[in-house]
Structure formats: structure tokens, C-alpha cells
Amino acid sequence: MSTEVSVSAINQELDTLNMSNELSQKYLLFISDGLDFGVKASYIIEIITNHHITPLPLLPSYIKGIINLRGQIIPIIDIRSKMGKMEGEHTNYSCIIVLDINSVMVGIYVDTVSLVADIDESKISPPSPHNKQELVNGMVSMADGKTLFLIDCEKLVEN
């Protein structure tokens, strides 16, 4: 009896939550090879810098290796080489964004992270047909005139 009531209450709550979500979503912005990218904040566990990456032999070059994050072993994908670009130099700004994508944990290695922004989802346009980047599933024009490419996280862990 009581369970029924609580379930419907939760559903209602979820509905309202979804509604507010439809308007805007938080995205983490990062830069890779001079371009701005965004990744949905809800996937992000944390951002780490200066972490030792253990390379694994015989893997595609975009897999930089694995890290030990407090006892969890997490594979690291280099977003530059995943997108078919040259591997960048390691700098003080280079960092790893740790994502939990449908409970698959991966880290993406990026040049630098910039900020967290609210993005109006209705303003997201589909990637241009010329775009060969299969990891990108949307584009947004930012206030400062730059274009932001949104990363399709599920695609990232798809094999």
C-alpha cells in the first residue's frame, strides 16, 4: 500500500526534475587541439592532474594506459588520438576527466579544462554533415562566439 504511494511520488519528482533538465544542463568545457568541447557534467566523477599513467602494450594508440585511482583501475583514452589527431605534449594543464558512463569508468586525457557552463539543450544543433568526428553529437554557439562540440559519451565506451 505504502510502497505504491511512494513510487508515484518519486515518479512525480522525476518528472519535474526532467522538466527542469530539459531547459538547461551543466556541461564541463575542455580544450583539445585548440577546439572547445563539452561533456555532460552528470557523467563526471572528478578531474585529476599529474597522475602517473601505466601504458599497456599492444593496444590502439588512443588508449594511453591505465591509472590507479584509489584502488580502482581506470583506462585512459587520449581524446586527441581518438579523434585522429597528433598526440599533444604533456603540459602542466593536461588533465584527466574521469567519467562514469553507464557504470563503465573511463578517463579522458585532455589538453586542459576551462569551466562548467549551463547549456540550454534546445540550442544544441546536430553536428554538421561535414563533421567526420563520430564522437561529437551536437554543437552549440557560445556567447563569446566560439563553437562548442559536445562529446557523445556513450559512443566513447562503445566498441
Binding site: 599497456l56 591505465i66 583501475i73 583506462p75 563503465v104 569508468m105 573511463v106
Partner: peptide
Amino acid sequence: PLPSYLNSF
């Protein structure tokens, strides 16, 4: 075990 993500490789 290695992360499941790597199994496909």
C-alpha cells in the same frame, strides 16, 4: 581484473 572496457581489445 583489467577494466571491462579493455576486454574488447
